[in-house]
Write a protein that binds this DNA or RNA. Structure first.
Lengths: 253, 253
DNA sequence: TCCCCATAAATGTCAGACAATTAAATCGTG
DNA sequence: CACGATTTAATTGTCTGACATTTATGGGGA
């Protein structure tokens, strides 16, 4: 039996803990293990895979970091297949998105266009399924945004909440999840932008029109207004950028 | 000094490895550590945090599982802040999406509507930025899909490739990343659907019209056709479902 | 019957050691 | 002096064994 040994090409010769984690991950994603199933204890796993307990623990920690399992101490404790909740999935997505944008030098325009493209995609569904609660939430955020002397951070937060309410109007949690990740991941880039008062007024005006259009279930108009909002935001970013460039060049000379 | 102990509410009293991982994660996401920065060695970290090396290692494995760091052995080795590549980010997103859909009993209709909503969102950008390469790729997939006797898996794979080319036409990697995750996460649900020949013909016909519309840069038409495709897919899923229900009830009696 | 406590099972943590890998320093030789 | 082989040191990967901590369970006593 010559092929009993590990195939040197396929398994990629990674760490033992990575291999074990992959094996368990596959079992979960393929459905062999379903939510709330209990994995064997660390001692049993170390025996099964022929490795020490620390190695097994490293594998389990890898899975825990991906929210694939959760662990409980004590008798009748152990590692259990975790039913990923939406808030957790949101956190995972936000982390990945933030990392992807910030460490890959994705420019603001690309991220911004992607975000508005996704949001425009769910506008028709929002127009169809929106509830009075969503409209009320959006109007509340508009009131907040209109207050003078609001910090840039607070304005951004309110902006995010407004768009979140708009997306939630689609009543599609999967859609909300994607959009939340897209928006959250942009937050670091977004915080580099400063909104002048005139720009804020323009944005708030568009928000009001969007809310009205949503109330009227006018999907085409929402689409158009979101496009306008995207344009405004991009212009804003350019202005901030040129301002910084100017300042930097001035300081350098 | 009574408050020297861990604050019982704020730090949430998690595992030491989770706390350390969180601290390093924050340092990376906040920008204190940038790509390719080298972390202190495991021995130094264990000394810094006052824990043992296995505990530090568990923390590092958590971060590695999120592709936040990568490790290298040997002298001048260690843990380095990892620049997340798009393929890796794609894998992360796909894992989370698959988990979210399969372990949370998200019904096919919800996932399908979300996917097409996102795809319709990038249709205008694709119409604007599409290249001849994208059109060629889509036409190649259409040819593949039209072959009779194709297995359901192969048909699905070609379908995915077709839509991927459509999305890539937007020339926005962030957008492509989101869509790829949405589609990949649906794969397990998608594989439960069987496409009859008549349905396949209908889908391929729509694909042809979509490609033509993309060539003509007619965003509105693409939007309309994607809507139709969504409707067809949903009808398909319902048919498969009722078929299964029928079979199951028959077997049960 | 009800409460308290011992017990057992499991994860969490530690200490020390050795193996494997890799880059750099060292040495030897032409 | 130059260049290649060898040694060395630093670092991660893995193992062993032990102890601490948490928690469900069951038994004993009031």
């Amino acid at each position: 039996m010559p092929d009993n040994s590990k195939s040197q090409q396929k398994t990629a010769e990674k760490d033992l803990s990575a291999q074990i984690a992959q094996a368990i991950r596959d079992a979960i994603l393929s459905g062999d293990l379903v939510a709330d199933d209990r994995l064997p204890s660390e001692a049993e796993l170390s025996d099964t895979y022929g490795v020490s307990r620390p190695t097994v623990r490293e594998a389990l920690k890898r899975l825990a970091a991906q929210s694939l399992i959760r662990t409980k101490r004590g008798a009748s404790g152990g590692a259990f297949v975790h039913r990923l909740s939406y808030p957790e999935a949101y956190g995972q997505l936000a982390t990945t998105a933030t990392l992807l944008l910030s460490l890959n030098e994705v420019d603001f325009a690309t991220a911004c266009r992607a975000r508005f493209a996704l949001e425009r995609g769910c506008a028709p569904l929002s127009a169809q399924n929106r509830d009075v609660d969503h409209l009320a939430a959006m109007r509340a955020e508009i009131t907040r945004q209109s207050q003078p002397g609001l910090s840039d951070e607070a304005f951004c937060a309110s902006d995010v909440a407004f768009h979140r309410a708009l997306v939630d109007g689609a009543s599609n949690p999967v859609l909300s999840w994607h959009l939340a990740g897209a928006v959250e991941g942009m937050q670091p880039l977004m915080n580099m932008i400063t909104f002048r008062n005139r720009d804020r007024a323009e944005i708030v005006a568009l928000h009001i029109r969007i809310t009205d259009a949503l109330e009227a279930r006018d999907a085409a108009l929402i689409d158009q207004l979101l496009n306008a909002l995207c344009t405004v935001t991009l212009r804003q970013a350019e202005a901030t950028e040129s301002l910084h460039a100017q300042k930097n060049s001035g300081a350098r000379i």
